[in-house]
Amino acid sequence: MRNWLIYEPPGGARPTLDGAEGFVTLREGFSKRAFVFAPFWLAFRRCWLALAIYVAAEVALAIAAWAFGLRGGSSFTLALLPNLAVGFEAAWLRARSLERRGFTLAGSVVAREREEAELAFFQDWLAGAAPTAAPRGASGAPFRPPVSGVLGLFPEPGAAR
């Protein structure tokens, strides 16, 4: 089973089948296409900032390989590191790109295939009860436990037992 993120287009959508056309479905996990074709994938998905960082990382790694005198397989392996990062972070990069363009996270669905995920989401969405993402704190920041002087389960010195 995979986790699928459903993004609603800017301005919202009417709860009709025509309104469902603008939604974008993203699969979380490693992307083989993004790994193999990283610069083209980033450009096609309009992740311009990530593409600039990718090019800068490739240039920096090429300079480092030249400076350390790496040849053959070692320099090739070093050059694949940015591709590996893009492959692992492809869904996150695309989600941030969609959010910058005004899309909002409408829900998250666990399913085997894209069609199954869209069917589960849109059945609830058309009924008026779209699944939502996990709620965050009132400030929108992730939950952080209170800081105390205790490490693990050890009691504080001098505390009542």
Rank of each mutant, 00 (worst) to 15 (best):
E58C: 15
S75E: 15
P39K: 08
V59T: 13
A79F: 14
S97H: 06
A56W: 04
A60L: 15
L80Q: 10
R71C: 01
G72R: 02
L81E: 00
V86L: 02
A43W: 14
V55S: 04
F88H: 11
A56T: 12
A52K: 11
E89A: 14
A56E: 05
A79G: 13
R96K: 13
I63E: 13
W48Y: 13
N83W: 00
F40T: 07
L98C: 04
L70S: 04
R46D: 11
E58H: 05
G73E: 11
R45L: 03
L80K: 02
C47R: 06
G69P: 08
A34Q: 08
R71A: 12
A38C: 04
L42I: 12
R33G: 12
A62Y: 10
S97N: 10
P39W: 06
L93H: 08
A85Q: 05
A60P: 03
G87H: 09
L80Y: 03
L78M: 14
I63T: 11
W92D: 12
P82E: 02
A34W: 10
A50C: 07
L80N: 02
W41N: 05
L61R: 01
L81Y: 01
E58L: 14
V36Y: 11
W48Q: 04
V55F: 12
A67F: 08
R96D: 13
V86P: 03
A91V: 01
A64V: 11
A67V: 07
G69H: 09
A90P: 04
V59W: 10
A52F: 11
A64L: 15
L49I: 12
R94D: 12
A57E: 09
V86F: 04
I53D: 07
V86M: 02
L51V: 09
I63C: 13
R45T: 12
L78F: 02
F88Y: 14
V36S: 07
R71Y: 07
G87Q: 09
L49E: 05
V86E: 01
R71Q: 14
A64W: 10
V59H: 00
R45N: 15
F40K: 06
A60T: 09
S75H: 01
A67I: 02
E89K: 12
A38Y: 02
F40Y: 10
A57P: 03
L42V: 11
W48N: 06
R96N: 13
L51S: 06
R33E: 12
I53N: 01
G69D: 09
A67C: 01
T77M: 13
G69W: 09
A79N: 03
A50I: 03
S75F: 01
L93M: 15
L84N: 03
A38M: 05
R71E: 15
L70D: 00
L70G: 00
N83V: 03
W66Q: 12
A52Q: 07
A52G: 15
L51M: 11
V36F: 13
A62C: 10
S74F: 13
L70R: 05
V59E: 00
F68D: 06
A91Q: 08
S74I: 06
A67R: 12
V86R: 00
S75V: 04
R46N: 10
A79S: 14
L78D: 06
T77C: 05
F68R: 13
W66L: 11
F44Q: 13
A64Y: 08
L84Q: 01
L78H: 00
T77A: 15
Y54E: 07
L42K: 04
N83T: 01
A79C: 02
V59M: 12
A64Q: 06
